[in-house]
């Protein structure tokens, strides 16, 4: 198992946002978590990556990380693309990418990886010396994905990657997430409001409603389910 949550609760100060969540991601799978605004999707991501305190068990490749901080979790091989991209706006594009490799020890191979992501996203290569804050939303999202990948993770968390992107850019982004999954055999956990496009690349999915898992199933099952259709697919 790549990631396993057993009865995880978390929140901010007063009261929990997540209640006893259990879910798992198998190696090589793309698992999507659907949910409306306020369902607790981002809280779930932050709980897994260690940014907020949480209770219950979170196992990454069998190791309990529920008391581990984010700086350590990324070193174990779990990287997150944060909501809103988390760009270092006053650093250059290349420096942003290099921060992704700060958790690594093999600095010699960092340049190789850098070239690899420049090849994948040529627009980042063209703008490598520019301040990252000047990039468009779509470019910043590519940057966030490549930055997370620069840590050479074995599990990638993506928090609402389509946020603020045009439909065409969203298509492109998910296509590139799919190819990362295929090329690198990368396990992924994606939180997304855009159910149609997310289910398109997912193996399985969970439906999150007010902090609990309301439904789980394969991507096809979820696409066919009336509840998901009515609430998230709009037909």
């Amino acid at each position: 198992m790549s990631l396993e949550l057993q009865g995880v609760s978390a929140g901010y100060g007063a009261g929990d946002v997540l209640h006893e969540i259990s879910l798992d991601v198998r190696p090589g799978e793309v698992v999507v978590i659907l949910g409306a605004n306020g369902a607790g999707k981002t809280t779930l991501m932050r709980a897994v990556s260690g940014v907020i305190p949480r209770r219950g068990r979170i196992l990454f490749e069998g190791k309990d990380i529920s008391r581990t901080g984010p700086e350590q979790i990324v070193r174990l091989g779990l990287a997150q693309v944060p909501q809103g991209r988390g760009t270092f706006v006053d650093l250059t594009v290349e420096e942003n990418l290099r921060t992704g490799a700060l958790s690594r020890r093999d600095s010699a191979r960092v340049n190789e990886d850098l070239d690899r992501w420049y090849t994948t996203y040529p627009r980042l290569a063209e703008r490598r010396r520019q301040k990252a804050g000047l990039l468009s939303g779509g470019e910043q999202q590519m940057l966030a994905v490549s930055r997370a990948m620069m840590s050479r993770p074995r599990l990638l968390l993506c928090d609402e990657p389509s946020l603020g992107l045009s439909p065409r850019l969203t298509q492109e982004l998910f296509a590139s997430l799919r190819s990362i999954n295929e090329e690198w055999d990368m396990s992924m956990l994606i939180v997304e409001q855009n159910a149609a496009i997310a289910l398109g690349i997912a193996t399985r999915g969970y439906l999150l409603e007010v902090g609990t898992i309301a439904r789980a199933g394969s991507a096809d099952e979820l696409s066919d389910s009336d509840a998901v259709r009515a609430a998230y697919l709009g037909y």
Binding site: S49, P82, G86, T87, G100, A148
Partner: peptide, 9 residues
């Protein structure tokens, strides 16, 4: 960006 920084380690 302190939050992003801790996410990259």
């Amino acid at each position: 960006n302190p939050d992003s920084a801790s996410l990259v380690g």
